[in-house]
Write a protein that binds this DNA or RNA. Structure first.
Lengths: 220, 220
DNA sequence: ACCTGTGAAGATTTTCACAGCA
DNA sequence: TGCTGTGAAAATCTTCACAGGT
């Protein structure tokens, strides 16, 4: 029983990217696309793109290209987007509010179905149609609502506690916005989005652009 | 004139991570740290950590470990954080507001020094002490304020236009939150944060956790 | 004895380049 | 001829394991 080759981790963000751009192409009325076209629309090397698509099966026709509709279907299946995912969001501060209002989630089949915070002024208030629960109710509410993905948007010092509650509640996938390294059991998957880190990487690149670029003066 | 080995791209996010954790250790009164300690605090393999630190010079003492203060200094220098960076933010919606309020930027030496939007209700209003300018004034305002990093937090269809204005204004580093592939000249560096993509990657992993995990019922 | 720094091996990812089918 | 699918080469990244200071 030979283990089937699984999809390389590095390919996953690109698969999600292809999916989005294919959606845009469909809106523009396209039905077929070649690897070169999709490659230039996504900024990915076309050989890499073909290899990525080959991981999810041979969906193209030689000499022609890819039918968009079945390709989209295959991508959605691979990414597990056919089962509508229920998301819990912990921490309804500035960022939490922005996430609740972010339409990109719903467009991709992610439904925010539970909100949690410790602030008594927030608990009981509906935001975007969902009543905020107290964070301590995570273990009770998450299983009830079939939550499979937890988003941590608390301040740093509250993040590990929120994470622990989510893990207790059976959540196995966590997206962490707090500037903290979360400790989790090995079966739990954590992805981290750290805005300060992104800026620091850019800052590094800015320093590389020749230090002469900085005090640029423009004639007026 | 041999080109000095440059820092691998893959190491940059880790360098930023070490920097943050070292700051926490300093707050706790530590002055020295070994690669094993820092490795377990950051979740990075200790050999990889030592190799990462070796890219920015030999900062440790064999048999002892690393002095935190000079290490922090070296990291800040490498990441270009000693020169205070001036950041422009385009698009003051939900996410833009959250970014203005995010303290993590200031803590790392990033000063948001210009805000832009096209909404006439926003233009002229101060947010977090900075008056919102109309997006069309980017080419004028950014050079005046020495902006080196631009953050695009507009809706997707406005993102390329905002990006073009930033590039015209001499900005060479862009952090893009819009779900769009920005086209830029090769000397411009774009990093992308796509929340929907992060969720889709988690969704993939959720599908891998054995489909039996989903309809988990908890006894009460 | 302890811990850094690093060659070398190993793993993963990207790119090349072309065979093979429409 | 045109474009996919893919072995094989190249590049990059990670891990091992130990030499070499303190």
């Amino acid at each position: 029983m030979t283990r089937e080759r699984s999809i390389p981790e590095a390919a996953l963000p690109r698969l999600a990217l292809y999916l989005r751009v294919l959606g845009e192409l469909t809106e523009n009325g396209a039905e077929r696309v070649s690897s070169d076209e999709l490659a230039s629309a996504t900024g990915v090397n076309s050989a890499k793109l073909r290899k990525d698509l080959s991981y999810i099966g041979s969906n193209g026709t030689r000499g022609v290209g890819y039918e968009i509709a079945p390709l989209v279907h295959a991508l959605e299946g691979t990414l597990g987007l056919t089962q509508n995912r229920s998301v819990a969001l912990v921490g309804i501060g500035n960022l939490g509010h922005a996430l609740v209002g972010y339409s990109g989630f719903a467009e991709r089949g992610f439904r925010i179905s539970a909100l949690f915070d410790v602030d008594p002024d927030l608990v009981g208030i509906p935001i975007g149609g969902i009543v905020v629960e107290h964070t301590r109710r995570i273990p009770e509410v998450c299983p009830e609502r079939g939550v499979t993905i937890g988003v941590v948007a608390t301040p740093g010092q509250a993040a590990q506690g929120a994470c622990d509650l989510l893990v207790d509640a059976g959540v196995r996938c966590i997206l962490n916005f707090a500037p903290v390294v979360l400790q989790v059991p090995s079966e739990v998957d954590v992805r981290k989005v750290d805005l300060a880190v992104e800026l620091q990487i850019l800052s590094f690149h800015a320093s590389q652009h020749g230090p002469g670029t900085l005090p640029r003066v423009v004639n007026r």
